[in-house]
Nucleic acid binder design. Structure first.
Lengths: 115, 115
DNA sequence: TATTGATATACGTATAATCATATATCAAAA
DNA sequence: TTTTGATATATGATTATACGTATATCAATA
């Protein structure tokens, strides 16, 4: 992936919020991202597909749920930037709201697993 | 400027090459960027105008020449990212070529100033 | 002031991105 | 199996980007 391609991935607010959440939380499934960002499922899914096709994200299916995470085999130059991305996005009120919605979320897959 | 807007500025290869060169060299005029990138003047100018409108770049006119530089009053989160951008872009062969064309350039404004 | 060199903008077009809505797939449970 | 919940994709409309070419502006100089 070229640097310009990489930045194009981050140039859309929806994708940026997804990437920042994943950078902070490690692994999240589609329904968690949908709830956290309060956007339609197809919209989230399309953006995740883009990020997956660029190899910025990896997906792993666990039963019905598909978990996404930052691809740990990105080029070396990408990781410091992702760290700075999180720092930048954490300063926005939007991101704090996203985190709150994520944490308040009932029926999270993790919880379901435990029951 | 929002983080997503900032990354959109960096998501085009022409703009990214301009920003990386400016990050490395401090200040360059349009004709230097045009020569370094080996692209048409209107194309460079239009991209620089975009970056200027987003306040990522500042321009200062000195006689006929217009110099561009990274805006030193960007939000704090932007500078570490710009530093990492340069590191990433410096690894590309394209950037090395751009730098060579810049340095080999005859009739640079700086030189003209001295004559 | 006429000209020239440097830079900026206008315009039409081609391509790409984004979106909402509808529908398809896929795995678990009934 | 049928159903249900989670996720993905298709479609068509809308909007945004990027481009080449032509032209305008602006400052220096003749």
């Amino acid at each position: 992936m070229s640097p310009a391609q990489f930045f194009k991935c981050l140039s859309d607010e929806t994708r940026l919020r997804c990437v920042a959440l994943l950078q902070k939380q490690g692994k999240l499934c589609v329904c968690e991202l949908t709830t956290a960002l309060d956007l339609s499922q197809p919209k989230i899914s399309r953006h995740l597909a883009l990020l997956r096709q660029c190899r910025l994200l990896l997906d792993t299916r666990e039963g019905s749920w598909v978990y996404y995470q930052i691809n740990p085999t990105l080029p070396d130059w990408a990781f410091p930037i992702l760290a700075n991305v999180l720092t930048a996005v954490e300063m926005t009120g939007q991101f704090q709201t996203d985190l709150e919605r994520l944490h308040k979320m009932a029926n999270r897959p993790d919880m379901a697993m435990c029951s």
